[in-house]
Amino acid sequence: MAEKDTSNKKIRVLLAKPGLDGHDRGIKVIATALRDAGMEVIYTGLRQTPETIVNAAIEEDVDGIGVSILSGAHMTLFPAILAQLKKQGVDDIVLFGGGIVPNEDKEKLEKAGVKKVFTPGAPIVEIIDFVRNEVGRNRADEKIM
């Protein structure tokens, strides 16, 4: 393949399922939808700890992390991922997610630094638009050499 000088950046998103539940139907639908919207989606599968999720996000150099939590452990797991991001000094990867999250918790989480929490029935277009517009916007511009 010929090498060219024009940049071909793509939005890269890591999708993961933290916690113990195995309901991955929703996150797989999102994975397919984001791919079809032209993004590169790294799917890491079930039962990921906050630490592995953040490590994977760093290695894959993604613009955003999307997680799905249906077990009710969202108030523990979202903050744990945020804490892990902070611990690793990452401040430019967007965290978003979805799941069975009551409104009250959703507000708390969004205040705590989760960019957006989608609840059941959120239209896929809305999620795609969110990723397109909000994820990857605030990547730190670092000097290479």
């Binding site: 916690g19 113990l20 539940d21 039962r47 700890t49 077990s71 009710g72 452990a73 108030m75 523990t76 797991l77 744990a80």
Partner: peptide, 11 residues
């Protein structure tokens, strides 16, 4: 267990 964090008694 570490993996049980946040899940005990939830579902």
């Amino acid at each position: 267990h570490a993996n049980s964090l946040g899940e005990v008694g939830k579902c």
